[in-house]
Simulated scan of single mutants.
Amino acid sequence: MGLLKHTPGKTRIKFCGFTRSIDVDAAVRLGVDALGFVFYEPSPRYVSPEVAATLVGRMPGGMDAVALVVNPTDEQVLRIKDRMPVSLWQFHGDESPERCTEIADGSPWIKAARMQPGFRLEDFSLQYSQAAGFLLDAFVEGYGGGGHVFDWSLIPELWAKENAHRVVLSGGLNTHNVGEGISHLQPCAVDISSGIEIAKGQKSPELMQAFIQAVRDADASILPI
Rank of each mutant, 00 (worst) to 15 (best):
R79A: 09
A27K: 12
Q186C: 14
I110T: 06
K203C: 08
E102V: 14
A67S: 14
V28N: 04
G171T: 14
Q202H: 13
L121N: 08
G106W: 06
A53L: 05
C16W: 03
N177E: 00
R166K: 15
L126M: 12
G146E: 01
L30C: 04
L55G: 10
A113N: 08
V56W: 03
D33R: 00
D217E: 13
L88G: 03
I196T: 05
A199S: 15
G9C: 02
V190S: 00
S96H: 06
M84A: 08
L4E: 00
L55M: 08
R45I: 02
S87V: 13
G2S: 15
T19W: 02
S221M: 01
Q209T: 14
A53H: 03
P205A: 11
I110Q: 07
A220T: 08
Y143P: 04
Q76L: 14
Q127G: 05
I110A: 09
L223T: 12
M84E: 01
N174Y: 07
P97G: 11
N174H: 10
T73M: 06
A138H: 10
Q130N: 11
S87Y: 09
S96G: 03
V69E: 05
A214Q: 00
P60E: 10
A199L: 09
L185S: 01
L136K: 03
V86G: 01
W109C: 12
I182G: 08
W89N: 05
F124C: 09
F39M: 00
I212M: 04
D151C: 07
A26P: 04
D74R: 08
R99H: 14
A218W: 00
